[in-house]
Each structure stands twice: as C-alpha cells, then as structure tokens.
Simulated assay, not measured.
Amino acid sequence: MEDSEDSRRRFTELYDENYRRVLGYVITRTDPHMAEDIVSETFVVAWRRLDHIREPALPWLIGVARNLLLKQRESGFRKRALVDRVAAMTTNDDLVAWDVADHVVERDSALAAIAGMSENDLEVLSLVMWHGLAPRDAAKVVGCSSAAFFVRLHRARRRLAKAIENAPASRPRRHAASRVADKATR
C-alpha cells in the first residue's frame, strides 16, 4: 500500500470528487436512508482496495455500489419471500377453527416476529423447516460443521419463540368450540 499520508490524501480526493455522483446513482435505486449506508460501504471498500483503483475511479465505485445494492436487494427479497410463504400457509380451515380477530392478531404477531429476525436465523430455519433438509445436510449448505449448525438452529428457534412470545399483540389461542361454550353460558 502507498505511504499512509499519500493514501489518506488520495482517498480524500477520491471521496470529494466522487461522493455526490455515487450517491446520485444509489439514491435512484433505493430509499435515502439505505442509500447513505450503501455509499458509506462503497467508500469503505474503496479505502480497503485503494491500491487497485485505476483512473477514472467513478466506474469502479459505481460498480461496487451496484454490487452492494444487489446484495441488499437479494437479502430483502429473501426475507419478504419467507414472510409471504408463511402468510400463504393460512388456510380457510384456520379461519373456521379460530375466531377471525384472534387469528389476525396471532398471524400479525407471528409475521412481525419473522420479519424482525436476522437473515442468518431465517436461512437456518427455512433450510430445515421449509426445505426439509436434515440439519447435517443444511450445515453443508451454509458451510459449517454439523455441531455449529445445530447450535445455530437451536438459537434461531429460541429467538423465534421469544419474539413470538414477546409480540405486543400476542394473545393465547382458544379453540372456537370453547368460545362458543363461553357465549352460551352468558
């Protein structure tokens, strides 16, 4: 790497010359809050790879920003897809067995709990619960040992249970027959 002072000077020039243009590119592709994060991460990568950046630097910087946007978008798609799949699992039989209001509250609480989970927890849970992989096979997918995967799975399940339990709108579920009996005794 270049001399420390030269590196700082070069990076400062790079930043001053390109920040607004990289931000302009990113802000047209995501919300303003996320755009700031993406641009910041772009310049972190630029600092780390400063010796590899050729002039003009803008195409390289926009390429990094584009890759970060794609990763962010893929992460969001995976999370939304999982929440949508859980939502789609609700059937008409569920509505017959449960009071509609209770069902909506419980479903919203569960969806909120899932939406609030980390991508890593969602991946671990979905590999086992939705894709039906044995934990040993799922460990190969994520690239860790079986023992490490079992720990991740245990922790993810525990965090999901706690998130559902702590959901503000969560109420105990009662079977429709017991609600009918309660109404009949009034």
Rank of each mutant, 00 (worst) to 15 (best):
R186I: 00
A65T: 02
F43G: 12
G76D: 00
L61V: 01
D84M: 13
S40E: 15
E13D: 12
A46L: 14
H52T: 13
E106D: 11
V124C: 03
H175Q: 07
T90Y: 09
N18L: 03
T30E: 02
A176K: 12
H131T: 02
C144H: 03
I114P: 10
G24D: 14
T185K: 01
R78E: 13
T42V: 05
R179C: 03
S40L: 15
A113Q: 11
P135Q: 02
D37R: 08
A176H: 13
Y19M: 05
I62N: 04
S170V: 06
A115M: 10
W98V: 00
L133P: 01
A177I: 14
S4G: 08
Y15K: 00
H52K: 13
L70C: 01
D16C: 05
R29G: 00
L50Q: 07
R136H: 06
E106P: 00
T30C: 11
R155I: 09
A134N: 09
R155K: 06
A147L: 04
D94H: 15
E74T: 09
L68W: 03
N92G: 05
M89C: 12
A115T: 05
W98E: 08
V105C: 06
R158K: 14
V100C: 03
A65H: 04
I38Y: 00
E123N: 04
R10Q: 14
C144Q: 02
R155P: 02
H131D: 14
A115Y: 07
E123A: 14
R80L: 12
N120E: 15
E55A: 13
H131I: 01
A97L: 14
I114D: 11
A147M: 06
R54M: 06
G24V: 01
L122N: 09
G132K: 08
Q72T: 05
I38L: 10
A176I: 15
V104I: 14
R158V: 04
I27K: 10
K140A: 11
R157H: 07
T90F: 15
A163K: 06
A101S: 12
L153E: 06
A169S: 12
S178Q: 07
N120Q: 15
I114E: 12
K71I: 02
P172V: 10
S126P: 07
L95N: 00
A147N: 11
A35I: 01
K71Q: 05
S126Q: 06
V45Y: 10
V100D: 03
K140Y: 05
I164A: 14
H33P: 02
H175Y: 09
D16S: 11
A167P: 06
W130T: 09
R49E: 15
F11T: 04
L69W: 03
K140C: 03
A115S: 12
A134Q: 09
D6Q: 15
F11V: 01
V26H: 05
H154L: 14
K79F: 02
H52E: 15
G24E: 04
V124S: 02
V39E: 06
P172A: 07
R136G: 06
L122G: 08
R186K: 04
L23I: 01
G116I: 04
A163Q: 05
L160S: 01
A163M: 01
A57E: 13
I62Q: 03
E5H: 11
H33S: 13
D3T: 08
A81D: 11
D51R: 11
V105N: 10
W60D: 04
M129S: 11
Q72K: 11
L58N: 07
D51P: 07
P168W: 08
